[in-house]
Amino acid sequence: MAITASQVKELREKTGAGMMDCKKALTECDGDMAKAVDWLREKGMSKAEKKAGRIAAEGLTRVAAQGNHAVIFEVNSETDFVAKNEQFLHVLDVLQASLLETKPASLEEALKVSTPEGTVEEVITNATATIGEKISFRRIDVVEKKDDEIFGTYMHMGGKISAVVVLKGTQDAQIAKNIAMQVASMSPVYVSQSEIPSDVVEHERELQMQMMQNDSKMAGKPEKVLQGILKGKVDKHFKDLCLNDQEYFLEPKQKVSQFLKENGAEAVCFVRYQAGEGIEKKEENFAEEVMSQIKG
């Protein structure tokens, strides 16, 4: 039977698949729209499997809060271009609403969460098929606060970096957002030095001590002086890793802890995601890539 342009357009809008694929699907399925959707999914899922070994190091993060819970998660793509398209952003919208509602405790639980478009895992698989790149759901954290605490959230560059903080002692949304911006921009690892594991501190002490022993300027200094210098070096190293010890980005002469104290606030915890951090990007040979597509 003859396949009309309007049928192809409708199927393309439903699936996001290419025009020629849509036409072929309708032809194979005698114009049956529902069967054509399934045909494309089967074909697309096969493509998705071929892409399973690809490295998805681009993408976006998302953060959202509702009531006493906030969710922050990351979805990756192979290219930055895809991370900006409407289909990819739609995937994040679909996932955000369902993840915020269900509050999964782990990545494994998150993949099984139901959305209006299937489970999270199915949404990701279908996105890989229709978008044409490997899409992956990488990680998720659910943050909980008490009734008298407040969330601050911030997304930089549409989600290249996302941060959520919990403050107590204030209900000022602007202060909370400012601290979330501090976390996003300055990448702290701990709230304060009291959170740093003792083995991490000891490792840094040993490293600084070794460096001091190799420094001729330290020769002949009294032990008490050396211990003071050592403490100063260790404290300086951890200064930028601790939120409270960092310079406040809106007032560099002031520490974050001072800004919070002036406003009767205290940082409880935070989570920061940067899209693609820690993923080793593979150098692609574009000539080989083009040839593999032709042969495929």
Score class of each variant (00 low, 15 high):
V75L: 08
N76V: 06
S77T: 15
S77R: 09
E78N: 02
E78C: 03
D80F: 08
V82C: 01
V82A: 01
A83V: 13
A83D: 01
A83M: 07
N85F: 07
Q87E: 14
F88G: 06
F88E: 02
V91C: 09
V91A: 12
L92P: 05
D93W: 07
D93Y: 06
V94I: 12
L95V: 05
Q96I: 12
A97R: 15
S98M: 07
L99N: 03
L100P: 03
L100E: 05
L100G: 04
E101T: 13
K103H: 10
L107P: 08
E109G: 05
A110I: 03
A110Q: 00
L111M: 11
S114C: 15
S114Y: 15
S114W: 11
T115M: 08
P116N: 09
P116F: 13
E117T: 06
E117R: 08
E117H: 11
G118L: 11
T119G: 05
V120I: 03
E121N: 12
E122P: 04
V123Y: 02
N126M: 03
N126I: 08
I131L: 08
I131H: 00
I131Y: 03
G132I: 00
E133Y: 08
E133A: 06
K134E: 06
K134T: 02
I135Q: 00
S136C: 10
F137G: 07
I140F: 00
D141M: 14
D141K: 14
V143M: 13
V143F: 11
D147I: 12
D147G: 12
D147R: 13
D148H: 14
D148F: 14
D148P: 07
F151K: 04
T153W: 13
T153Y: 10
T153F: 11
T153M: 14
Y154K: 02
M155D: 13
H156C: 12
H156T: 02
M157W: 15
G159Y: 13
G159C: 04
A163T: 04
A163R: 05
V164E: 06
V164P: 01
V164K: 09
V165H: 01
L167V: 11
K168Q: 15
K168Y: 11
T170G: 13
D172L: 09
D172V: 13
A173W: 05
Q174I: 15
I175N: 03
A176G: 09
I179F: 04
I179W: 01
A180H: 03
V183F: 03
A184H: 06
M186S: 15
P188I: 07
P188E: 07
V189M: 12
V189G: 02
V189Y: 04
V189Q: 09
Y190F: 12
V191K: 08
S194F: 11
E195H: 11
I196A: 02
I196T: 06
I196M: 07
P197G: 04
P197W: 01
V200N: 04
E202R: 10
E202W: 01
